[in-house]
Simulated assay, not measured.
Amino acid sequence: MKLTIAILAGLLVASMASAEEDPQQAIPAKLKVMFERPDKPLDVAPVVVQADWAIVGWRQDGRGGRALMKKTHQGWNIYLCSGDSLKNAATLEKLGLSVNDAAGLTGKLKDAEAGLDPSALALLSSFEGTAMMMEASTGAGGDHEGHAQ
């Protein structure tokens, strides 16, 4: 009996760890904890990932947009929210992403959004302007943990 409990506990911990590590599960889960309300469900799709960066579409209560997210030692965090500007590789490069990461993200985003219905795409595009979410110290330039060296 103890062995069975130990095996089940091990499987539970392993499944929780893999869910946290899989950005396709971890990112929507984090956003839902932060923003979803019982009367305002949050739809998170698509989620595209390139290295430590992700672009995520979100829709809630008749509104929507895209979020640029960055993986740090604390997990996935929202770097900024915007609309169509996140579909542009040059914009991502200006934010500090490498040429490869910017091109990879925008290419994956184009493919992922090709399957969305027009009303969902319109909501993703409806976010006006840009809202910065992360402090510069944890932003595109890295975690900056070694400044004192």
Rank of each mutant, 00 (worst) to 15 (best):
K2W: 03
K2M: 12
A6Y: 03
L8H: 03
L8G: 07
A9E: 04
A9V: 09
A9N: 04
G10F: 02
G10K: 07
L11I: 12
L11N: 06
L11E: 04
A14W: 11
S15I: 01
M16K: 05
S18E: 08
D22S: 15
P28G: 09
P28F: 02
A29Y: 03
L31S: 09
K32M: 13
M34V: 09
E36R: 05
R37P: 00
P38V: 00
D39A: 14
V44W: 07
P46Y: 05
P46K: 09
P46S: 12
V48Q: 12
V48G: 10
V49D: 12
V49S: 11
V49N: 13
V49F: 05
V49R: 11
A51V: 04
D52H: 14
W53N: 12
V56W: 04
V56G: 08
G57K: 03
G57A: 07
W58H: 08
R59D: 05
Q60V: 06
R63H: 10
R63P: 00
A67V: 03
M69N: 04
K71D: 00
K71R: 15
Q74E: 13
Q74M: 13
W76Q: 07
C81H: 06
S82W: 00
G83L: 06
L86S: 05
L86K: 04
N88Q: 11
A90Y: 00
T91G: 01
K94F: 02
S98V: 06
V99I: 10
N100I: 12
A102P: 00
L105E: 11
L105I: 08
L105S: 11
T106P: 05
G107I: 01
L109I: 08
K110W: 04
K110V: 11
A112R: 03
A112G: 09
A112S: 11
E113Q: 12
G115I: 08
G115H: 10
L116M: 14
D117H: 09
D117E: 13
A122T: 06
L123D: 09
L123Q: 14
L124Y: 02
F127Y: 15
F127S: 07
T130W: 00
T130F: 00
S137D: 06
G139H: 05
G139S: 08
D143N: 07
G146N: 14
G146H: 15
